[in-house]
Design a protein around this nucleic acid. Structure first.
Lengths: 187, 187
DNA sequence: ACAACCATGTAACGCGTTACATGATTTG
DNA sequence: CAAATCATGTAACGCGTTACATGGTTGT
């Protein structure tokens, strides 16, 4: 058995918080909120919606009246219970693969400047990401002052920012070390 | 097309550093070194070794003489070039899915104590991991004082420790916030 | 008119995980 | 003599990504 999909719960969760969403809406909701730690593509969203509906965890509200055709969904009581049950289940902490670290690990097989290059690119990437998250951290309380979920949303953003900050500091540390190595290499 | 596998490069890298390794050895090498950011199972190692050999990136040295039967491998010049070439290629920074954050994100759908429980479990897990890495950081220079790759290995360990430290600090921050929410919940 | 965005899907593919299978050799 | 470790694989499965496909509506 492969790992069980959690896409269904992500989608259920969005529908619990934003009832009357279409598949397209769900994608848009995730963009700018869960995107940096959880992403779904249309290719997964639509089939999942279909199966959730078959299991009576959500119900469709066909709104093909005015404007565009769209199928919107609401979570059912059963769906909410299923979601809540999953939410209490233990999280197994899994370790993601990290290609940058793999390349650094084998760094002695190439010129040091190659590793330096990787880390500089990395720094740029995560600096940009961190900026985005810091903007979100500022705007969220203004946009959703009365939202019950706000403290939880902020916690996820905070996680992202702190991890990125640590990564940035590591990158600077790494650059210092690598520059030392580069000097040795030239001798 | 799905994402191209990088297992081959991880295995090539290990063979570059430890020539004469068997599939079993490769797995053992990774355990205790790359394990926290890159892991391969036997189910992937043996087929990859086979295909690497067919491509002349490694050569097998059947050593069925004394002791156990084992097939060991060495990286070829071509293999080393292939690996070095990959090492210089840009790393696309991908972010992994994070189930803990997903559950925290939807935390308002359940009792706050559920989120608290998750974070406490998380803290235990990463504390243990951090301890392991700190031990490795201490022992590595003693075990491999003359290893050219040592500075690179230490950088990966440092990355792990710093990220885990940031995660721990976030966890404490989160617990503080959640305890405040819990008090409100009781009112 | 045209671009940007809204909206919903299907199909193919490969990758990684899990389960399963087998057996030899060393250590206690 | 049993347990741990060494050693090497196969098979099934589902998950997520990418590419492909289609067409309506709004804004400039």
């Amino acid at each position: 058995m492969a790992k069980a999909s959690k896409s269904r719960y992500a989608i259920l969760g969005i529908l619990a918080n934003a009832p009357g969403s279409s598949g397209y809406d769900i994608r848009a909701s995730m963009e700018g909120s869960t995107d940096f730690f959880w992403r779904e593509t249309f290719s997964s969203i639509y089939p999942v919606l279909e199966s959730l509906e078959k299991e009576n965890l959500i119900i469709a509200v066909e709104s093909s009246g005015e404007g565009r055709k769209r199928t919107t969904y609401k979570i059912t009581n059963e769906g909410l219970k299923t979601l809540q049950n999953w939410l209490t289940e233990d999280v197994e902490l899994e370790q993601a693969r990290n290609e940058l670290l793999l390349k650094i690990f084998f760094g002695d097989l190439n010129a040091v400047s190659s590793s330096i290059q990787h880390i500089e690119t990395y720094k740029k990437g995560i600096s940009a990401k961190k900026l985005v998250l810091e903007t979100i951290r500022k705007s969220l309380p203004k946009e959703y002052p009365d939202e019950a979920a706000l403290p939880f949303w902020l916690l996820t953003v905070e996680f992202g920012i702190r991890r990125l900050q640590a990564s940035l500091e590591w990158a600077d540390h790494a650059l210092t070390q690598l520059l030392k190595l580069k000097k040795k290499e030239l001798k």
